[in-house]
Design a protein around this nucleic acid. Structure first.
Length: 658
DNA sequence: ACAAATACTATTTTT
DNA sequence: TAGTATTTGT
């Protein structure tokens, strides 16, 4: 077996490296970037140059002679991976692009396309996004007759998240229901039956949901031959945002790195905000036990924020009952105190933010350096209207996404049945669009075409009777054309020609808007060479902008304001940050939050929000808020910001200017 | 089979 | 409030 000898001894001549690592990094960062072999845990506080460190480490590995193709960089979003590799390439040039990088899910996807046969996957398996999974569950619920229960059966979203949680926490369904969802106990038998059917349905049709990607990769790695081969292929593994991995992901990392132990994980226990989908803070704390001999490096110098902003951040996080592993300090000078702004009502809050953004622009802050963050996507609705009225351009991240729109899903479904004729959910979806076909006829047709490699030929030959026959035949003809087409762009073109009349019939009131979305989608599709990768990307890395997209601004090059959920803002930074609705009940959101752990996650979320700001930070909330049911209520300051010394957080009352 | 009207309920964050 | 399940009418 080939071994690379790498020296991390600092006394060794640094002259063999083109980059002066010691000059460009602080001592902790340097240690992290130049410790190449063995397990390393980096605890990296907010704004501590984590990305910079990872970039320099990739550069260092490459400079030390490690082939870029043997480095695996797992990040939270693919964008993050691309950004790091771009910067590493700028440093050492050459082929850092060869580094394998992406999310756990995209890595699992690629690996399973190549090596999934051992766990029963063909090369053409289809990825179900969350909405698809819910559709399947809905379909099967009807099939099992569970919709006619005397007691209300939980709705499809609830069922889907239950199933998902069971996988991500590696807990049997029965146990999970007993512990976390006692109110569903009466449905346990039905849920178990549904779950079994769901699993069987997917595996018999080459359908794979998000969780299956991880489960199947994990299972594939149980094969020691494959684990060994992948260990050889990826000799240096790096994982970013490790605090947000779940048990399954941690186990995957362990199996991947087993052969060589060259694994670095980077994370911040104070920024763990994905427990709701099964993330385990314990992963980061227990990493040293999983990999004996782990070197632990802490990055606690903050380069991002001014001292006053950091003071507030530390105040927020230090009130947590559980103490975190570090305290941030900064070398950046003084600055303005963060302000807590009390508005009378939501319109006034929006007015303040919009007004202040205009002032900042006058003062020379580019719009691209301004962000408005919020706990939940809908918190920004009112502000969006206010910004539009003033012609302030913005993009919104998080919330309802492009590919979740019904019309985009419809078009994708046509493409999917061509790639995977077993994809019953997509068949069902496109058949229901035809006039004269309901669930009954759809089931009948599905029964006839099941298992056929070219079902559209079957449909063309025997389209059934009545007025739906012509419709079915038209569909069959289009699918045959699409199957024969070469490139994704051409395929989408053919589907759109067929689908647009359908769209007009189904959505007579707002089809123009939807047609514009589809044009945009066609443009995206043009960029792809293979249909499989287009479909995979739409499921795993969909365009991040919300459906509303960019509102037409003046088109100048100073950029646009970012509106984002705190979750989607992870890892990013701006000169000025506004946080909306810092009122108890909204942030922290007390909807599903029952126990203390949930509240602590909300606290970390607030910490993530405030540490996004470099220079200016405004926290706002309206006193008067409408609550469904209750009507007008008086809002209280978020409990995370209550009773904070005025030296740290400046209370501001808005003066009526009318 | 389907469309329209009505009743109801749970209400976040994302790969 | 909106998205969904159910009921009723064609």
């Amino acid at each position: 077996m080939k071994r690379y000898t790498l020296r991390s001894d600092p006394r060794r001549a640094e002259t063999q490296f083109r980059i002066a690592y010691a000059d460009e990094l602080n001592p902790q960062q340097l240690a992290a970037a130049t410790t190449l072999d063995g397990p390393v845990l980096v605890i990296a506080g907010a704004g501590s140059g984590k990305t910079r460190t990872l970039v320099y480490r990739v550069a260092r590995l490459v400079e030390a002679g490690v082939p870029a193709g043997t480095i695996l960089l797992l990040t939270f979003t693919r964008k993050a991976a691309q950004e790091m590799l771009r910067r590493a390439t700028a440093l050492v040039g050459g082929d850092c692009a060869q580094v394998a990088g992406g999310t756990f899910h995209s890595f699992a996807h690629l690996t399973l396309r190549r090596h999934g046969q051992g766990v029963g996957l063909s090369r053409d398996f289809t990825i179900l996004d969350r909405g698809d999974s819910e559709d399947v569950i809905n379909l099967l619920r009807g099939e099992l007759g569970l919709d006619r229960k005397e007691r209300r059966f939980p709705r499809k979203q609830a069922v889907a998240s239950l199933f998902s949680m069971a996988v991500n926490c590696q807990t049997p369904l029965a146990e999970l229901v007993a512990d976390a969802y006692p109110h569903l106990e009466e449905h346990l038998d039905a849920l178990s039956a549904l779950h079994a059917r769901y699993v069987e349905f997917k595996s018999s049709r080459q359908l794979v949901d998000y969780d299956d990607l991880l489960v199947k990769l994990h299972a594939a790695l149980a094969d020691e031959g494959l684990a060994e081969r992948l260990g050889q292929r990826y000799r240096y593994v790096m994982v970013d945002e490790y605090q947000d991995t779940n048990r399954l992901q941690a186990e995957i990392v362990r199996r991947l790195a087993h052969a060589h132990d060259n694994v670095m994980v980077v994370g911040d226990d104070a920024q763990s905000i994905y427990a709701f989908r099964g993330a385990e803070i314990r992963n980061i704390m227990e990493f040293p036990q999983l990999f004996p001999g782990t070197r632990i490096i802490t990055l606690d110098q903050n380069y991002r924020s001014t001292q006053p902003i950091l003071d507030l951040a530390n105040t927020v996080i230090n009130r947590a009952p559980q103490q975190y592993t570090k305290n941030l300090f900064t070398t950046r000078g003084p600055g303005e105190r963060p302000a807590l702004i009390q508005a009378r009502d939501e319109p006034e809050q929006s007015h303040f933010v919009a007004q202040r953004i205009l002032e900042l622009r006058e003062e020379g802050v580019p719009l691209s350096e301004i962000a408005v963050l919020f706990r939940s996507s809908f918190h920004s609705f009112d502000l969006e209207i206010a910004l539009s009225r003033r012609d302030i351009p913005f993009v919104k991240r998080g919330g309802f996404r492009f590919v979740e729109a019904a019309h985009v899903k419809d078009v994708l479904a046509h493409l999917r049945v061509v790639v995977n004729p077993d994809d019953t959910v997509s068949w069902h979806r496109i058949l229901l669009l035809l006039e004269g076909i309901g669930p009954k006829s759809s089931q009948e047709i599905l029964g006839r075409i099941r298992g056929n490699a070219r079902p559209w030929d079957v449909l063309a030959a025997s389209p059934g009777r009545g007025k739906s026959a012509a419709e079915v035949q038209r569909l069959a003809r289009v699918l045959a054309e699409v199957a024969a087409a070469e490139r994704p762009g051409e395929q989408i073109g053919r589907i759109l020609t067929y689908y647009e009349p359908v769209l007009r019939r189904v959505h007579p009131e707002d089809y123009p808007k939807r047609e514009r979305d589809l044009e945009q989608f066609a443009t995206i599709a043009e960029r792809y060479r293979s249909t499989t990768s287009l479909l995979a990307d739409m499921a795993l890395e969909p365009p991040t902008d919300s459906i509303a997209g960019v509102l037409a601004g003046d088109g100048d090059d100073e950029g646009v304001v970012t509106l984002s959920t705190v979750h989607s803002a992870k890892g990013l930074e701006w000169h000025t940050v506004f946080v909306l609705w810092v009122a108890d009940g909204r942030f922290p959101s007390t909807y599903g939050a029952r126990d203390d752990d949930d509240i602590e996650e909300e606290r970390r979320l607030m910490y993530v929000a405030v540490t996004r700001a470099k220079d200016l930070l405004y926290l706002t909330y309206p006193i008067e808020a409408y609550d469904r049911g209750l009507g007008l209520v008086i809002a209280k300051t978020s409990r995370f910001l209550e009773d904070i010394d005025e030296d740290v957080l400046e209370p501001v009352a808005l003066v009526d200017e009318a």
